[in-house]
């Protein structure tokens, strides 16, 4: 199965990736190869086989419901692109 330019633009929008028009045709070609590779899975008979999300059967651990994190806001915000008075700045979202 092949992806159209429209499909690729829609995927890029979902993934929040700006695509330049010049990138589209190369991507379409590479995707044809990648889909050809992963489409091999369609031929495998997996009736009755449960999906496996993880190699080891691990149980989720529980911990005491106590505060363990300390306040490190200033430290973490020191590497942020834009902050002011302890807040992360982004373009206006609500008019």
């Amino acid at each position: 199965m092949a992806l159209t330019d429209t499909d690729l633009r829609r995927l890029a929008r979902l993934a929040r990736l700006r695509l330049e028009e010049s990138e589209i045709s190369g991507l379409r070609e590479q995707f044809a190869g990648i889909l050809g590779l992963i489409d091999q899975l369609q031929a495998v008979d997996t009736r009755g086989i449960e999906p496996l999300s993880h190699a080891l059967d691990l149980e989720a651990r529980l911990r005491e419901d106590v505060v363990t994190e300390t306040d490190q806001r200033a430290r973490f915000q020191s590497v942020a692109p834009q902050v002011e008075e302890g807040l992360y700045l982004v373009p206006k979202v609500i008019e």
């Binding site: 899975l41 369609q42 495998v44 997996t46 086989i49 449960e50 999906p51 496996l52």
Partner: peptide, 13 residues
């Protein structure tokens, strides 16, 4: 794709 790949993952294991 995703669930089918996970099923084949079990076959590999």
């Amino acid at each position: 794709y995703y669930l089918q790949a996970q099923r084949v993952r079990r076959l590999i294991v």
